[in-house]
Computed example of a mutant assay.
Amino acid sequence: MTSTHRRLLILVAAVLVLAGVGTGVVLHAAARADQANQPHPGGPTVGAGRLTLDQKSRLMFVNAAAGPHRTAVASVPSTDPGGGRTASGLKCARFYAAAGTGICLQSDPGVLEQSNRALLLDAGLRTRRTYPLAGTPSRARVSPSGRFVAWTVFVSGESYSSAFFTTRTSVLDTRTMRLTPSLETFSITKDGTPYHASDINFWGVTFATDDDTFYATLNTADKTYLVRGSLSRRTVTTLTGNVECPSLSPDGTRVAFKKRVLSRTDLWHEYVLDLRTLRETPLAERHSVDDQATWLDNRTVAYALPSDGDVHSTDLWTVPADGTGKPRLLIAGASSPAPL
């Protein structure tokens, strides 16, 4: 056998081995996907149905329970959150809705790169507009009137615990369809003086009822701040430090937020901040909460925690907003709650 023949045989063998490895990887991924689409015994009852954002006394969320409706926007009665859930045909990584306006952030893994987009939804969950996203979906909110929508994505890094991450937060006026691609274009007042820096990041927008005021997290120089912003003036002002993912109460007097406990750790505890006095109240949840909480009413906040035994799923929990009581399971296998 000549050296040329030997090299040819080695090349063919290498191609066959690589093909076999590639096939194995594809089959393994397919098996994992198929397993994720199989309902777990004893899991929640999930059925397909028509959902709208003008239904009253409903709680909408992203279904995280295993089965064919995983990641679908689903709904349960507010009075029976643990009951059977109705799933739409819309699938989202993050979701929120208010006053007949919805926002759905989608992330589809592709062969060469991940595809991310934001869908502006009408009351029938139909897509009004589609916007490409610069990174992986992280947070989404709609103003109480339904006029403004905000979303945050990770442009680099995959979590707020990463040593190197960059976020981009956008705000859309659904009346004029004017998009502010990044809050980083807003003027910043920090500790009473104008502030400029190259490392600024914003995330976790929450809106007031006046269609102008909003709150968000500002990160710079390895510190986080709660800022109050004005959409019309395109300004933000720092209020206090160590506040992440704020969520404004329905009455506009308090902000629920996650507070980093112990410097340089990836642990957050839930607190509520009185906006008048800036007094902080720790909530009864002692697990680390990496989520933007949602107020179900003026007394109760909801948030997601990882599910036991399923690293790809979360459960929704609630806790009293005054620091009393104890956490209670709201919906197993769910995320992104939006009370209608």
Rank of each mutant, 00 (worst) to 15 (best):
S3R: 14
H5W: 06
L9S: 05
A13W: 12
A14K: 01
V15A: 15
V17H: 14
L18S: 12
V21W: 12
H28L: 15
H28F: 14
A30W: 07
R32Y: 07
R32E: 15
A36R: 11
G42S: 06
T45P: 02
R50A: 13
R50E: 10
L51V: 12
T52V: 09
L53V: 11
S57V: 00
R58K: 13
R58V: 13
L59A: 03
L59Y: 02
A66C: 04
G67T: 11
V76N: 07
D80F: 00
P81Q: 08
G82F: 07
G82W: 08
G83H: 10
G84A: 14
L90K: 13
R94D: 12
S107A: 14
G110A: 05
L112V: 14
E113M: 06
E113H: 08
Q114G: 07
S115N: 14
S115A: 13
N116D: 13
L121D: 03
D122N: 15
G124F: 05
G124Y: 02
G124E: 13
R126D: 07
Y131W: 05
T136H: 01
P137Q: 07
S138K: 09
R139G: 00
R139E: 14
A140Y: 05
F148M: 04
W151N: 01
G157C: 11
T167F: 12
R168F: 00
T169S: 15
D173Y: 07
R175I: 00
R178V: 09
L179T: 08
S182R: 09
E184H: 06
S187L: 10
I188W: 01
T193N: 05
T193D: 04
Y195N: 04
Y195L: 04
H196L: 08
V205L: 10
V205A: 02
F207G: 03
T209A: 15
T213S: 13
T224K: 12
L226V: 01
G229T: 06
S230I: 00
S232M: 02
R234M: 09
E244F: 02
D251H: 01
D251Q: 04
G252M: 07
A256E: 04
K259Q: 15
R260L: 08
S263K: 11
T265H: 03
T265N: 03
L267A: 12
W268N: 14
E270T: 15
D274N: 15
L275I: 00
T277F: 10
P282A: 08
E285I: 06
E285K: 09
A293N: 10
T294D: 04
N298C: 00
T300I: 01
V301R: 02
D310I: 01
T314C: 03
W317H: 11
A321M: 06
R328Y: 01
L329R: 14
G333A: 09
G333V: 06
S335Y: 08
S336P: 01
P339T: 06
P339K: 10
